[in-house]
């Protein structure tokens, strides 16, 4: 059976095509605001082409993500935590919780008995837009997100930025630049603050288990943040290879039943 999942985020749209429990194609494209419905069509077409399939070959398409309502060709829609949970269980059957850090939201999903979800904790409003503010920082620092993520080492305690709000953090980072702090160190401080904010959400209610927590979403690809988060939270996150496609994968799995 062939099914597909489309995850429409605020920043990117991700598509996954699944054949008998195997991912056969992935695709991603920028959402582009008003162009979101068109972008979804585009990534859908490209991903189908990559898998050498036509739309009629796919039995069912399920959409998830903030803009799931924009996917006209989806047969069904599923809320994000459910898709996350499904993907985590599929990838790591022993997992007990999944943390999704995307462009806009941070979600901590604690898995329950059977297929169920025990609890979902989301970021408070002031911690929204983590991924978005990272991207804005990367423009200011003149570094790609990839270059930022490769910065190694702990940030210096005397070089810190606000850890409560991404906008204040930007302001502090700009202040550091104007004092000639090397941009690599500024980048580390920014990413450390992001880790503090994510950890603060982890501390919210149920602390995720040490060895059975899956980390997904675009920000999970940032090694520097993940290292800082591991150090702060003491959780050894399991990060799947295509972590940013977890939502789409979960949706595709839901489509398969």
């Amino acid at each position: 059976m062939i099914t597909a999942g489309i995850d429409v985020g605020i920043e990117n749209i991700k598509a996954v095509i699944l054949k008998d429990g195997e991912v056969i194609a992935r695709g991603t494209v920028r959402s582009g605001g008003a162009k979101r419905a068109m972008s979804a069509e585009k990534v859908w077409k490209d991903t189908l082409a990559a898998a050498r399939l036509s739309p009629s070959d796919v039995e069912k398409v399920v959409a998830t993500g903030q803009g799931k309502g924009d996917v006209s060709f989806a047969g069904d829609r599923v809320v994000e935590p459910v898709a996350d949970a499904r993907a985590a269980r599929f990838l790591y059957p022993a997992s007990t919780s999944v943390v999704d850090v995307g462009a806009d939201q941070v979600r901590v999903v604690t898995l329950g008995k059977g297929d169920g979800i025990a609890e979902v904790v989301m970021n408070q409003k002031c911690a929204a837009g983590l991924g978005i503010s990272l991207k804005s920082m990367s423009r200011t620092l003149g570094m790609t997100l990839d270059e930022m993520s490769r910065q190694a080492g702990n940030s210096r305690s005397d070089i810190a930025v606000n850890d409560g709000c991404g906008v204040f953090a930007e302001m502090d980072a700009l202040g550091l630049l104007s004092r000639n702090v090397p941009r690599e160190e500024v980048a580390l401080a920014v990413m450390e603050a992001v880790a503090v904010r994510i950890n603060s959400i982890l501390n919210d209610k149920v602390k995720p288990a040490k060895d059975t927590t899956v980390l997904v979403g675009g920000v999970s690809k940032n090694k520097a943040i993940v290292d800082a988060l591991k150090r702060r939270s003491g959780v050894n996150f399991i990060i799947p290879e295509y972590a940013e496609y977890a939502g789409a994968l979960g949706a595709a799995l839901m489509a398969a039943g």
């Binding site: 408070q124 002031c126 911690a127 810190a160 850890d163 409560g164 450390e192 603050a193 503090v196 904010r197 950890n199 603060s200 959400i201 501390n203 919210d204 209610k205 702060r232």
Partner: peptide
Amino acid sequence: QHEPDDTTDRQMYGNCA
């Protein structure tokens, strides 16, 4: 004092630092 705050989000969100 200033120390990274990753513990008070749930209980005291919206309060002064």
